[in-house]
């Protein structure tokens, strides 16, 4: 029985893991909200972790300063990467984020100051359960508000149809770069919390594979609503722990789940209830429409009508 050895310390660890993974996934969510495809968020979290770790270890900075510094570095990297890739084809832009991740890995590897292949160590333990969950709560609240803010609506307009968004006066390049950078900052913040708990950050944590991981978490949970990212980050961290999966098995599960989810539920597990729509009425309306369609199947269709 895998559940037999439940101990408080063990679950404390798992939940802290889940907490900062959910935070990094929230960063992924914010960057995706304007339609960017990113596998760079592990590298962003890594940039935050290295920055934060150096600040507390070598400069004796308190954790809040380290968090601020890490987020700032994430934001700067994010805005540069955002501007570089904003005018490119979606796939090429995605590849740019991949290239960025790999460059970051090489940089972390080759700078002795950052610890090289052994990673950054000697960082003080400053992250606690309550801190992680306080930050998670604050971020969820902030991003939830962001979603219905001026910028949030503009971001989603860019995601759905950049050309129409531009015609409606939205500066697509700026909105996409800015939201990408904000997401990168959130991910970097998660990274700062991570390194002050795990006490080590290694270059391979920044790579494409880890980045793909956060993309998966966000897409699985649902990339159209803030709860989706939290759900994805949480379940896919805690579930394999309960099931006691090896790393390879976990990835096999991830991959299979990802494929199935994107096909049967393209918006992810958690989907959005938009402003002014009450769930029940919408359901009833859809049901009615479906029934009507059945009844008058093959009925007159107007030219150009897309169904």
């Amino acid at each position: 029985m895998p559940l037999a050895d439940i101990s408080l310390a063990y679950w404390n660890t798992v939940l802290i893991f889940a907490g900062y993974i959910a935070i990094i996934t929230l960063g992924q969510y914010v960057s995706m909200s304007s339609g960017s495809l990113s596998v760079a968020h592990a590298a962003m979290a890594g940039a935050g972790a290295y920055t934060g770790g150096l600040l507390t270890r070598d400069f004796g900075a308190p954790l809040p300063i380290a968090m601020l510094g890490g987020a700032l570095v994430g934001f700067v990297f994010g805005i540069v990467l955002g501007f570089l890739s904003v005018r490119l084809h979606l796939l090429v832009a995605g590849l740019m984020t991949l290239a960025y991740s790999e460059v970051m890995v090489v940089v972390a590897f080759s700078l002795d100051y950052l610890g090289g292949a052994n990673g950054l160590t000697g960082v003080p333990a400053l992250t606690s359960f309550w801190l992680v969950y306080l930050m998670l709560a604050v971020l969820v609240l902030a991003i939830w508000r962001y979603d219905t803010s001026r910028l949030g609506y503009a971001a989603r307009a860019c995601r759905d149809d950049p050309r129409a968004a531009a015609a409606m006066g939205i500066n697509v390049a700026w909105v996409k770069s800015l939201t990408f950078a904000l997401g990168a900052a959130v991910a970097a913040l998660g990274g700062v919390l991570r390194i002050h708990y795990t006490l080590v950050e290694t270059p391979d944590g920044l790579g494409f594979y880890q980045g793909m991981n956060f993309l998966i978490l966000a897409v699985f949970g649902g990339s159209y609503v803030v709860w989706g990212a939290v759900f994805g980050g949480f379940t896919l961290t805690v579930l394999p722990e309960i099931l006691r999966f090896s790393a390879a098995d976990r990835y096999i599960l991830y991959g299979a789940v990802l494929t199935v989810i994107i096909i049967v539920r393209p918006q992810g597990v958690i989907t959005r209830v938009p402003l002014g729509a009450d769930g029940g009425a919408r359901w009833a309306w859809r049901l009615r429409k479906r029934l009507m369609a059945r009844l008058v199947a093959g009925g007159a269709k107007r030219p150009g009508e897309e169904r």
């Binding site: 995601r159 759905d160 409606m168 959005r272």
Partner: peptide
């Protein structure tokens, strides 16, 4: 904007 509902489509254009 297919993933925003009707009123949100209009609100988005207020940017």
């Amino acid at each position: 904007f297919e993933n925003l509902n009707v009123i949100e489509n209009v609100i988005a254009a207020r940017f």
